[in-house]
Design a protein around this nucleic acid. Structure first.
Length: 465
RNA sequence: GUCCCGUUCGUCUAGAGGCCUAGGACACCAGCCUUUCACGUUGGCAGCACGGGUUCGAAUCCCGUACGGGACGCCA
């Protein structure tokens, strides 16, 4: 049987970075075994599910390159099927009608808590009851939990985990209003979708034992389970907004590349010897779910940023230029064809010194428009009277300089040589005049990208300012 | 409270009884490279949670303790 995995988020908000990692593992596992990777939207909570959230999830997955192999399944559309299975269980005698009201249950729970003993539901009085004598409240369907023995799950990540039957109680599978509960719906869906491996967050580990009741009662074969640890923030607490970016698309906004995010997420809680930089193809080849760590891992933005720098330097110049220009456009920063062309020219040098697309955009800004750049205080401080005289002189000679990148570099070295100064004494004032900053790509690259006219214009403006 | 899971440098990890004087990466510090900033490169700092076993030998196996996380709903 072919391997089939699924990622099953509920559309109640943006796609969390932890969810993205779960999706990645499902994807990698399926690919590794030549199977399919599916998506199921668990939207049975009508109150909290929104179409916007569904779209967000789809967009996030697409950005990460984790779109499913088949159209997504919407759990809410499968409710008739969930109810049918519940009734089948009832007919088999594996489940029964329970006539408790929510108030009664709440009272029993409160009582147990007050007495400091664990609450365990007891529905024995409903089992085998004559419907004619039943209370006149709409009943819920509860599945009969095993009364003795223990349930054992061989989890691919957590190992063998066992829970005694005494820990399980008769769980509701169909509410009194006829809607299915989550734990029941998941089992029916996973079965019908022919899911062979359920890879999900370890917050579901104990739920697994409840779900097994449905599999076993229906005599369905249980899938393999793999419960991967959740991601925590830098302080070890559950990852939340206050830790920084958590929504997948937030990382895009902050200038991270999807391949860097995926690589980082893969390495978080999973290792393969000393290799750190692992591309998609390589990941598919070497990923093994059994190697995933059992402990929660902490999100480290500094390391993610480092990974991003690695992928940024490896990225195509055209792609990065496009990304940077898109950023400007989105922010309403106007630019002409000259600006776009200059950035394209500068990109090979720009990407060497940036860690995110956002930094790239910031570093490219000086080249976008004609005229003197915005001057940073540090750069302005560089423009001493001596430096200005130097610039004045430079502007004059630059008129005849050969305008090719290689030639410009040599020309500058020769110029410094002839004038008997260090190259730095020429390059730094020049850098300040051309970029308004003390740091930039190599000065010859800047000169070349700006073009002779623009470059000389800026130099003169700085020399006379 | 009950049950389940976990614990190697600050962080992510390698480590399947002797290869461990515990390796790599990020971060941090110092040096080199250099036209600035980066990149690169060299070196440094820093860890097996604790206590008992088992064994000739334990980061690795067993048992406790401590600390963290998760689950206990007619939520998902």
């Amino acid at each position: 049987m072919s391997v089939r995995t699924r990622f099953a988020p509920s559309p109640t908000g943006y796609l969390h970075i932890g969810g993205a990692r779960t999706a990645l593992f499902n994807f990698l596992f399926a690919r590794r075994h030549g199977g399919q990777y599916l998506l199921r939207i668990e939207d049975t909570d009508r109150q909290r599910s929104t179409p916007e959230a569904v779209q967000q999830i789809l967009d996030s997955l697409a950005w990460l390159g984790l779109s499913p192999d088949e159209p997504p399944v919407f759990q809410s559309q499968r409710e008739p099927r969930h109810a049918a299975v519940a009734r089948e269980l009832l007919a088999k005698g594996a489940a029964y009608l329970a006539y408790d009201t929510p108030d009664e249950l709440a009272a029993q729970r409160a009582e147990a808590e007050a007495a400091k003993r664990p609450f365990k539901y007891d529905g024995s009085r409903w089992i085998g009851m004559d419907p004619a004598k039943a209370p006149s409240v709409a009943p819920a369907i509860r599945i009969k939990a095993p009364r003795e023995g223990e349930t054992v799950v061989k989890d691919l990540v957590q190992g063998e985990v066992r829970v005694a039957a005494s820990e399980l109680d008769d769980m509701i599978i169909l509410r009194s209003d006829g809607t299915p509960t989550y734990l029941h719906a998941v089992v029916v869906d996973d079965h019908d979708m022919e899911i062979t491996h359920v890879i999900r967050g370890d917050d579901h580990l104990t739920n697994t034992f409840r779900q097994c009741m449905v599999y076993d009662a229906m005599r369905w074969r249980r899938p393999h389970f793999a419960h991967v640890p959740l991601i925590h923030g830098a302080d070890g607490a559950k990852l939340s907004k206050r830790h920084g970016a958590v929504g997948a698309l937030e990382f895009k906004e902050q200038g991270f590349l999807p391949e860097a995010v995926c690589n980082y997420l893969l390495r978080l809680g999973w290792g393969h010897g000393d290799t750190e930089i692992i591309g998609r193809e390589e990941a598919i080849r070497i990923f093994d779910i059994a190697d995933v760590g059992r402990a929660a891992a902490r999100m480290d933005y500094a390391k993610l940023t480092h990974f991003n720098g690695v992928y940024l330097r490896a990225a195509e110049n055209d792609r990065l230029t496009r990304e940077v220009l898109e950023r400007f456009a989105k922010r309403g920063v106007l630019f002409g064809t000259d600006g776009a062309a200059r950035i394209a020219l500068l990109m090979p040098d720009l990407k060497e010194r940036a860690k995110t697309v956002e930094e790239l955009a910031g570093a490219a800004l000086f080249a976008l428009h004609d005229g003197p750049p915005a001057m940073e205080p540090k750069a302005a401080a560089l423009l001493t009277a001596e430096a200005k005289a130097r610039l004045q002189d430079l502007a004059q000679f630059l008129g005849d300089a050969p305008w090719e990148r290689q030639d410009l570099e040599q020309w500058l070295r020769d110029y410094a040589d002839v004038k008997g100064v260090k190259l730095g004494a020429v390059a730094q004032p020049l850098r300040a005049a051309l970029t308004g900053s003390t740091q930039s790509p190599p000065i010859d690259a800047v000169l070349f990208a700006l073009g002779r006219g623009e470059a000389i214009g800026r130099i003169l403006a700085a020399a006379e300012g």
